[in-house]
């Protein structure tokens, strides 16, 4: 092992310190939010909570968890996220594989037209009403597929994956074809394992997106079938406060509840992240196929 130069050692010290500083400024607001979610209504309302709960209580979590709807909504969200993740990765990766071949001799006819087709789809949309009409006409209203199918194709991720595919060494692919593999086999045996980092990234983004999306749930589902995000959003929404509900409003402790809502909503993803993290570790993938 070569000795590490002094300048480099200093770089590492400064760099580590800087990284920890960044971590701190990112985690402090979250601690603040956690503290708020655990604090009493008056302490929150008077803005006296900083990084430690005042008047510790679990009212907000109880309020969010007491409703039977929560379990149903979590289940809907899990189904929706799983289906969207599976279908999303499959459909987008397949399309990305095809498009990564370009329009030449290796690819498909009409390449440019198809790319344009997707780009336009990424930019333009018809708005809420026509989409709602379509979903109801297709008989998808109040079905889990209403939450999944419309957002399966995500052009941004499609193009991202496609660019990763393009960067893969051509030699491997050619060798596989030489050995008699067809496109499906090359896709499944070669491309997918080689692009685990990008698949993990896109997978994570998809999960975050689907887990937090609430509008479709609000529009396409009946009240007892809404996903978690929609449900949580509805219980934290602040009513217009007037004479008839002022006393209730004083008890409701809205900021605590909305903080609890954020944490409940983000928790599954925060738990998932460390699992996915190993895919971002340098070199693991290429190293594995180097031989």
């Amino acid at each position: 092992m070569q000795p590490i130069p002094v300048s480099e050692r200093w770089f590492h010290i400064v760099n580590n310190a800087f990284m920890l500083f960044l971590a701190a400024i990112c985690v402090l607001p979250l601690i603040h939010v956690v503290s708020i979610s655990l604090s009493s209504s008056p302490a929150v309302a008077s803005n006296s909570v900083t990084f430690w709960p005042i008047g510790l209580n679990f009212y907000s979590y109880e309020k969010a968890l007491e409703d039977d709807q929560l379990i149903r909504s979590v289940w809907i969200s899990v189904q929706r996220t799983a289906l969207s993740l599976g279908l999303g990765l499959l459909v987008n990766c397949l399309a990305a594989y095809v498009l990564s071949k370009g329009g030449g001799r290796d690819g498909i006819a009409g390449y440019k037209g198809i790319v344009g087709f997707f780009i336009v789809a990424m930019l333009f949309n018809g708005g809420m009403i026509p989409t709602y009409l379509l979903v109801t006409k297709l008989g998808l209203y109040n079905s889990i597929w209403a939450l999944v199918l419309p957002s399966v194709v995500n052009v941004f991720y499609l193009i991202l994956i496609m660019n990763f595919f393009k960067a893969l060494p051509k030699e491997l692919e050619e060798a596989a074809f030489m050995d008699g593999a067809n496109h499906w086999q090359v896709f499944y045996r070669l491309f997918l394992p080689l692009s685990l980092p990008v698949l993990a990234t896109v997978g994570l983004f998809l999960v975050v997106m689907e887990w937090n999306e609430w509008l479709m749930g609000q529009i396409y589902m009946k009240a007892d079938n809404v996903p978690l995000s929609t449900f949580l959003k509805s219980i934290i929404a602040v009513p217009v406060i007037d004479a008839s509900n002022a006393a209730d409003a004083a008890k409701m402790n809205n900021r605590s509840i909305s903080s609890a809502q954020i944490l409940i909503g983000a928790l599954p993803i925060l738990l998932m992240y460390p699992v996915l993290q190993r895919f971002f570790t340098k070199g693991i993938v290429i190293g594995a196929v180097k031989e």
């Binding site: 459909v91 333009f124 018809g126 708005g127 194709v153």
Partner: peptide
């Protein structure tokens, strides 16, 4: 086997056509 490629991209095209292009008529609003 290049026809496989068309098969592979078909799901994305059908879904996009259905859920993006069909409602896109709403743009006339």
């Amino acid at each position: 086997d290049s026809w496989h490629l068309y098969l592979m991209i078909l799901p994305a095209i059908v879904l996009t056509l259905l859920f993006v292009y069909v409602p896109m008529g709403g743009i006339v609003m």
